[in-house]
């Protein structure tokens, strides 16, 4: 008896829809807690985002973003606490200024501006987290794979 999963895998299928890979840098105090809340509340959202917990959105170096794109990410999300709510008082303000420039730079060289996003998600906003990720995945599916900055290896 053949294994049904094997037969479906080998059978000629329609061209597969691109499954985007999204790298999400999430601050430990707000967004990570928010994504936890989305999880424990059993809110359904796509599993395309790879969460990377950072201590603060202010520690996200522009190199993290560039490197993620270089290693093949279709989209990069940086998410932190709402302005004024930073655990370290002003980390997210620094992040906002720094990543604004990164976003402008990526736009300037002609990368689709939608591929880099920032969001403020507090620990109580599990639904917002699910919403942000679903929107991001939907838009990235429409844009297709990111080939511009991806290393050709």
């Amino acid at each position: 008896m053949s294994n049904p999963s094997q037969t479906t895998a080998t059978a000629p299928t329609a061209p597969q829809e691109h499954e985007p890979r999204i790298v999400a840098f999430q601050c430990k105090w707000c967004t990570s807690a928010g994504s936890d809340l989305a999880g424990v509340s059993r809110i359904q959202y796509p599993a395309n985002a790879v969460p990377i917990q950072v201590m603060c959105s202010g520690m996200v170096s522009p190199m993290y973003v560039l490197s993620a794109f270089n290693k093949g990410a279709d989209g990069v999300l940086v998410s932190g606490c709402h302005p004024g709510d930073c655990h370290y008082m002003k980390g997210n303000f620094f992040a906002r200024r720094k990543l604004y420039l990164v976003q402008k730079l990526l736009q300037f060289i002609g990368l689709e501006s939608d591929r880099f996003r920032m969001s403020w998600i507090s620990a109580a906003e599990g639904t917002k987290y699910a919403q942000v990720i679903s929107d991001f995945v939907r838009d990235m599916k429409a844009l297709g794979p990111q080939r511009k900055l991806k290393a050709k290896r």
Partner: peptide, 24 residues
């Protein structure tokens, strides 16, 4: 390793963008 030393398009892009942002 943030980017390779090889002069590929993608690696040079990372280099130049990093330099630009470091000079912001």
């Amino acid at each position: 390793k943030w980017c390779e030393r090889s002069p590929n398009t993608s690696e040079s892009a990372v280099y130049h963008l990093t330099r630009a942002i470091h000079l912001a």
